[in-house]
Design a protein around this nucleic acid. Structure first.
Length: 412
RNA sequence: GCCAGGGUGGGUGAGUGGCUAAAACCGACGGUCUGUAAAAUCGUUGCCCUGACGGGCUACGCAGGUUCGAAUCCUGCCCCUGGCACCA
């Protein structure tokens, strides 16, 4: 399999969209990768993810997609769940030490992840590992031995730590250990390539250093840019709320992708789709020359991402739904149900503010009232002003831009 | 253990006895516009009652206290951070 694709072609695919933040490192890694690919043997590739939250986002998908590319080229890919590293918490890119998680939290997060991983990766060709399996049993003597391969100065040079020192913020010993653990993972897995977001470069290079110190062949780091969130400004993250989850329904995912700033499109295309580079170039040219409607390009993007995570049919359906609901302002195909006790005519007179808060569409009755006052509520296309409304079975309540409720008869 | 600084709404962060449901900014939400983009613009942004005027309740780490009145003063406690001491 590997032999069928030329090294040049592999390099072209694998180096698409990578980012190192340092041209020297990039050059070295490219050379090393080319050299190792030319041996013609499948490479051992891994990428670790710390189960610190319940859902994976499109941000996590960027390195996952890179894993998939390796996988398709016939390399051995391991999805490593950081059951141990997740406990400690990665200090990279953090201004303060992260809260340590419990074993239970980590395990439960890991479980939900496994459901999501295979939307991107081929389950038959992916090895799943948990680093707790080997890290947990290390003895203190072994940890000390491991630590002896690194110097404090190396860590203090790391930007994250340096900044923290400069700002007189706490810096804990266990945060140093994090990089050691990752290094040990790389050694344990006898890895040829470690993938990760570019903010992981320090940790990944620690693995390279350890392997070299142990007389092993040092791994090649392949790092991807951090994906910007849907706001187009900050890094995509759950805590900021500017994220798209891998688990989200196609229509929702499609909609969120349509709401990203235009400027983000090239970035998303490169990092989240497998649209060939030549086509991307064409799209960018079209956008620059204004011969291509940005909305059309974005639809293509949204469709591509949904198709990658689901399938073409669902992507088409998501697009159709989007066009129907948001472009033509027609009714959605599916809506959350609002069960109401109806009279014999199939109608009910209710206080809409109460109904919305009970249904959880509005956080409180006050919030529902505000929505009403601001003209944010309509029933079957008619904006309403009064809280007391007549609803019938099948009535469609639209709240704000994109929340819908369909009235159904309550049981009993 | 000691010294110092600090704990305010989703976030940053004002406020040092009543004019404070708490400035400002950000975010978020809603309207107009529109391509669920950007920009613009108007508005909302603790909870509950009311059609509205208005009223009630809860809130500034926790628990008490002083006061007609406390986010603001006092006491105790908890937590965060830096430094020092102990270990050496």
């Amino acid at each position: 399999m590997t032999a069928q694709v030329s090294v040049d072609e592999q390099m072209r695919v694998l180096m698409r969209g990578v980012e190192y933040g340092d041209p020297n490192i990039q050059r070295t890694m490219e050379e090393d990768l080319r050299e190792r690919l030319s041996l013609g043997k499948p490479l051992r590739v891994y990428c670790g993810f710390d189960p610190t939250s319940t859902d994976l986002t499109l941000g996590n998908m960027v390195p996952m997609l890179k894993m998939r590319q390796f996988q398709r080229l016939g390399h051995d890919v391991t999805f490593l769940i950081g059951t141990m590293t997740g406990l400690v918490g990665d200090p990279s890119d953090k201004t303060a030490a992260r809260q340590m998680l419990t074993v239970e939290q980590v395990e439960s997060n890991a479980q939900t992840w496994l459901r999501q991983v295979f939307r991107v990766l081929d389950p038959d060709k992916t090895t799943i590992e948990r680093n707790g399996d080997w890290l947990a049993s290390l003895t203190l003597a072994e940890v000390v031995q491991l630590a002896s391969n690194f110097t404090v100065a190396q860590f203090l040079e790391h930007e994250t730590f340096r900044n923290r020192m400069a700002e007189a913020k706490p810096l804990y010993i266990h945060e140093f250990i994090y990089a050691l653990m990752q290094a040990y993972d790389a050694h344990h897995l006898k890895t040829d390539v470690q993938l990760g977001a570019v903010d992981q470069l320090f940790n990944i290079m620690a693995g390279r250093q350890l392997q070299r110190a142990l007389g092993e062949r040092p791994l090649i780091a392949v790092t991807t840019p951090l994906l910007k969130g849907t706001d187009g400004v900050l890094k995509m993250s759950k805590s900021v709320g500017n994220y798209v989850g891998l688990d989200e329904a196609p229509a929702e995912m499609y909609g969120k992708l349509m709401s990203i700033p235009d400027s983000l499109m090239p970035n998303y295309f490169t990092l989240l789709t497998e649209v060939p580079s030549e086509e991307l170039a064409e799209i960018e040219r079209g956008l620059a020359a204004k011969t291509l409607n940005p909305m059309e390009a974005k639809k293509r993007l949204a469709r591509s991402v949904v198709a990658l995570l689901y399938d073409d049919g669902q992507a088409e359906a998501a697009q159709a739904e989007f066009e129907r609901v948001f472009q033509r302002r027609e009714e959605p195909e599916e809506a959350q149900e609002l069960p109401l006790a109806l009279d014999q005519d199939g109608k009910a007179s209710v206080d809409i503010t109460l109904a919305l808060s009970v249904a959880g569409v509005a956080g409180s009755r006050s919030e529902a009232r505000r929505l009403l006052q601001q003209g944010g509520i309509s029933i079957d296309g008619q904006p309403i002003k009064e809280a007391q409304v007549e609803l019938a079975e099948g009535s469609l309540i639209r709240v704000g831009r994109h929340r819908f409720l369909r009235v159904v008869a309550a049981d009993g």
